[in-house]
Every structure is written in C-alpha cells, then in structure tokens.
Computed example of a mutant assay.
Amino acid sequence: MTSNPRVVFAKRPGDALPVVGEHIILDTSRTIDLDKVPLNGGFLTKTLILSPEPAIRERMRDPSITSYSTTYTVGAPIVAFAVVLVLRSEKEGINVGDYMYGQTIWEAYTVQPYIEGRINYKPEDWAPDTFDMDSLALRTVPNPNGLYPLSRYTSLLGTPGLTAFVGFEGIVEGKEGQTIFVSSGGSGVGAMVVQLSKLKGMKVIASVGSDAKAEYVRRLGADVVFNYKKQSYESALAQHGPINVYWDNVGGESLDAALEALVPLGRAVICGVVSSDNVPPAERYRLKNSHLIMKKRLTLRGFIVPDLIPQFIGKFMTEVPALMATGKLKSEEAITQGFENAPQAIVNMLSSGHNAVGKPVVVVAE
C-alpha cells in the first residue's frame, strides 16, 4: 500500500482568511494500492503539480451565498487545478504515461474522473447559453516535451492564461495607441493581460504590491508599473492616464480610481475582486465614483472563464503555445516544494500583498 495524502476542506472560514490546520488540513491517513485499486472504466493519476488560485476561496463560502460555482463540502478534499500523470487506464483515449491538466481532487493519487469535483458551473442559472461541462476538467497535455516546463500548464497555458486570453479577446477590444490599466499586474491573469495588451500595441499601466513584482511586470513589457502600497491608485492614474480600458483583478479602491481615470465611453473588464476577499461586508470598500458610470457612459462587464470558452478555446490552444515558443509570451512560477506545504500555499496565495513573484505553484512529485 502507498500513502495517499490529500488536502481537505475542514471548516468554512466565513469572511476571514483561512487558517491551516483549522479550515484547510493535510490528511495523511489514507493509503492506496496502485496496482489493484479498481478503475471502473476510468484511469488512475499521480499528481505532479498543484495550482493555488483565487477561485479556491470562492468555493469556501457558505452554500447559502449564490455565486458562479458550487461550494466545497466540509470534510471533503479540495478540488482545483493540477497537472497529473496517468499510471493506469481503462478509458479509451487516455493512455498510460499521458500528462493531463485541469480540475481534479488534490490528493497524491486519484481514480478519475472525479466528477463530483468539477466546477459544476450552471449556465442555466447565469446565462442563456450552455457550454461543455468538461471544458475545465482534465485534458491531455498536447506537448509535454515542448520548449517549456509542465508548470506552464498552471500559468500561461492553465486557468490564469485562459482567463486572460478569453477575456481579452472577447471583451477588451484593445486597439493600438489605447491605454489599459491592469490591477494586480503581477498575478497569473494580470501578467498575461499585460503581455496581450503590448502585442496589440497598447500602452500598459499596471499596479502591483511589491517592488520585486514591479520589476517582474516591467520585464513583461509594461510601460508604467507602480506599487500601490507606495503610490495611490488615484495619484498614479492621474499622472499616467487617462485610460481607455481597465482590467480589474482587485475591485475596491482600484476600481474607484479607474472609474475616474477612464475616458468617456471607456470600459472596465471585471475579472476579480480580491480586495474584498477575507474582509467582512461592513468593512469592504464602498465606491465613491459610481456616478461616473452614467456620466461618462462607461461599460462595465463582469465575466468568468466558462462564459467565453466555447468561442475562444480553439484560438487559445492554437495561438498561445506559438507565442510562447517564439518568446512573445513569458511567465514565471513561484514554486513551493512538497504536498505537505499545499495548505499553506493556498493561504499564502490568498493573503493580501503576498510577495511571491510569478504564478504560485506547488510541485508535489517529479
């Protein structure tokens, strides 16, 4: 028998930052027989890389709070993005030795498909159209021996890159000579938006939470990068704006400043609201410039990645690897080693102003 550790969601954190050992725990009590465990027509995978992402926090909410995803079950394992290796298979089209990436249970070894663990996005509740429910489930890595490491499938080729790409293609409508402001420019999504914007010939202003992240985003090509802890959003945008487009990963004060800096008929793409995560409702920032939405005739569009997958997944899979191979798209990953450190990696990723440069990943096996 082989030890089969897993990351378990033990308790809902409410509006507070999750705590390792209380809300997220490492369960090392389970074992698995890798040779004899029944596959029931499925396949057995070994986890190689875990990808902590903000959507994990969204799924920790109370089930009574309506949102775009199902909630985690207390006592059940965390389900999120990962890269895995196929060890055994009874499923046609899935072969031993295949690398796969997508949503899966966070444990060392898993009999797939773990259907209960999928995003379970319900388009009938949120939009008139439907999309392939398997679009965020495990899919085969197309080129595991390519020019870049497997960790890229958690950044540029993973959920962050896909989110940035489909949002940029479907909503931003970026044009040469325009100016875009990207909040959290050093995040996995933000870093991709910065680069896509530069490929369109746009001027890019980006905010980050540390000087190290500022250097990283400058290396990606941003024209103006400021540390919001040292210079206010309002001051930076007054100095370097106005802006035509705002890509919002943050919300709160950043969105407020962007509303003031946007030109008439400008647009804001609302991709994330991390400034309000782990903050009680009564303490969350309240917009002061919402009146400018009407007066400037601004367009604000919120989205999540499944909204645009059917339209742009093919283009993403074709264009992004080619841009990476030619060095036109780059990324860095902030690597944590060891399955035992996965719970803390989640908390670190969710902590405001964490100092990791690049997309956080946890390497649990070679």
Rank of each mutant, 00 (worst) to 15 (best):
V208Q: 08
N348F: 03
P306C: 00
A236W: 06
F131D: 06
E107A: 14
E253P: 07
I119D: 12
P321Q: 12
R301F: 04
D132L: 00
G97I: 00
L136K: 06
K213R: 06
N244T: 07
E366C: 02
E366F: 02
K328G: 00
W126H: 15
A261D: 10
I119Y: 11
K315N: 13
Y68P: 03
G302N: 12
L199P: 07
I304V: 15
A258Q: 04
R57S: 09
V217I: 12
C271M: 08
P144Q: 10
Q344V: 10
L255G: 02
I56V: 12
Y233D: 07
Q344P: 12
L157H: 05
E58T: 10
V269W: 09
V225M: 12
D15Y: 12
L196V: 02
T71H: 11
F316S: 11
T163L: 04
P264L: 06
I56Y: 00
T163A: 01
S67K: 06
A206R: 10
P360V: 07
G174C: 01
L255R: 08
P343W: 09
T71E: 11
R139G: 05
S351R: 06
R284C: 08
G221T: 13
V79R: 04
H354I: 06
F165M: 09
Y148T: 07
Y99M: 09
E169R: 15
P149T: 10
A191R: 11
L196I: 00
V193P: 03
E107S: 11
E58Q: 12
I171K: 09
I119Q: 11
V141M: 08
V194F: 07
M60L: 01
T31I: 03
Y148R: 11
I205W: 12
V273G: 06
V225N: 14
L308M: 11
A356K: 15
D134K: 14
V362C: 09
S184A: 15
S235T: 15
A282H: 15
P5D: 06
I115K: 13
